[in-house]
Simulated assay, not measured.
Amino acid sequence: MNELRGAGVALVTPFNTDGTVDFESLAKLIDFQIDGGIDYLVVLGTTGETATLTAEERKQIWTFTSEKVNGRIPLVAGIGGNNTYEIANQVAEFDIQGYCAILSVSPYYNKPTQEGIYQHYKAIALASKLPIILYNVPGRTGSNLSPATTVRLAKDFDNIVATKEASGSFAQFNEIMRDKPADFLLISGDDPATLPMMALGAVGIISVVGNAYPAEVTALTKYCAQDDYATARPIHNKLLRITDLCFIEANPCGVKYILQEKGVIAHDSLRLPLLPVGKATQDAIKAEIALIG
């Protein structure tokens, strides 16, 4: 799965002020990513506010993005949730045209056991026509996909090919790297962890801040992949503050404001329960944009 190496971006979903999907801005955002050199795009991950979209809107966005990209870079579809049978059915029925893999978040809210998480992903793997990327983000799901379960899934299912790790635990990253099959990929799920994770052997990042700074995130991963950490480190440091501001009022509120300020999308509109960032955060973001240049 060389398509999953390097810089991936978890795309936001632009909305008009009336709450409808802004496909014109989405088209501009896609071109902005490709022009910035990004290696692949994740369509309708959690950053895409997928939980607030209807089934029909999700299909429209997947199809629109595939047609707009037109094979220029690989695409990954985000299909995840806490109803195993529903997610397995969605995966089985997914139109794979233009897509190389599926990113599926570990089931949230239910707080399943490790065996329950294993059986959840087993059902998805058996239903899928595409390779699967696990996604562990305990801060959002309320449960942790353990290294032992990650490695067990990687060994038991040939089509489970990678994990996006956003646990923040380097003990966990180390254990996965030590025990995983050689061809199973570890991908950073947190922008600030990209450089140290790649030093451990991770292959890249699925980024949020890359929505607004694709060239910088791409350069960071390329230098890390070349073991040129002296060159990568200033890029890493340059992005730290703006990344913090992306999350200060929940994701993707901050990065949508940056994209609006940079003229990539028309509006920083979100769907409830999320709201645009407040004045203090706006001012901080504007100041940091000016510093970054």
Rank of each mutant, 00 (worst) to 15 (best):
A266H: 12
Y257V: 05
L200T: 09
E249Q: 11
A202Q: 05
T281L: 03
V255E: 03
G263E: 06
L291D: 12
L240W: 11
K279R: 13
I242L: 02
A266I: 00
I258Q: 01
C224A: 12
I289R: 06
L200M: 15
G204L: 06
I265Y: 00
V277I: 14
D191T: 02
A199G: 15
A215L: 13
K238P: 01
Y223M: 13
K286V: 08
A230Y: 10
D244F: 12
P196L: 04
G204R: 01
L245M: 08
D228Y: 07
K238C: 04
A193I: 09
R233H: 12
L186D: 04
G278Q: 08
G189D: 08
A202M: 10
M198S: 11
D268Q: 09
I289D: 01
D244N: 13
G263Y: 04
I289A: 07
D268C: 10
A193Q: 14
I292P: 01
P192K: 09
T231V: 10
M198C: 08
A232W: 05
A225M: 07
A193V: 11
S188Q: 10
P252Y: 02
V277K: 00
K286S: 14
V255T: 12
I206L: 13
A266M: 02
A284Q: 09
I248E: 14
V255R: 02
T243Y: 11
V217F: 01
K256A: 02
A225T: 11
I206V: 15
K279Q: 15
G204P: 01
Y229T: 03
A230K: 14
K238A: 08
Y257D: 00
L240N: 11
D244W: 06
D268K: 04
L239M: 15
K286C: 07
D191F: 10
I206M: 12
P192E: 10
G254A: 07
C246R: 01
G293H: 12
T231N: 14
L270Q: 04
N251T: 07
R233D: 11
T194D: 07
A230E: 14
H236C: 00
A284S: 13
L259T: 09
Y257K: 01
E261Y: 00
L291H: 12
A215W: 10
G263F: 03
K222H: 15
D283Q: 15
T281Y: 03
A250R: 09
S207E: 05
H236I: 06
V217A: 09
A290H: 05
S269C: 06
D191L: 03
K262P: 04
L274Q: 03
M198P: 07
C224I: 11
L270R: 01
I205P: 07
R233T: 15
V208W: 01
L240R: 11
G189F: 03
L240Q: 15
A232M: 03
H267D: 09
I206R: 06
I235V: 11
L272M: 15
D268M: 07
C246D: 10
R241P: 01
G254T: 04
R233P: 03
L195E: 06
V255M: 02
P196C: 10
S207A: 05
A284Y: 05
M197S: 10
Y223R: 12
F247G: 00
P192W: 00
I242E: 00
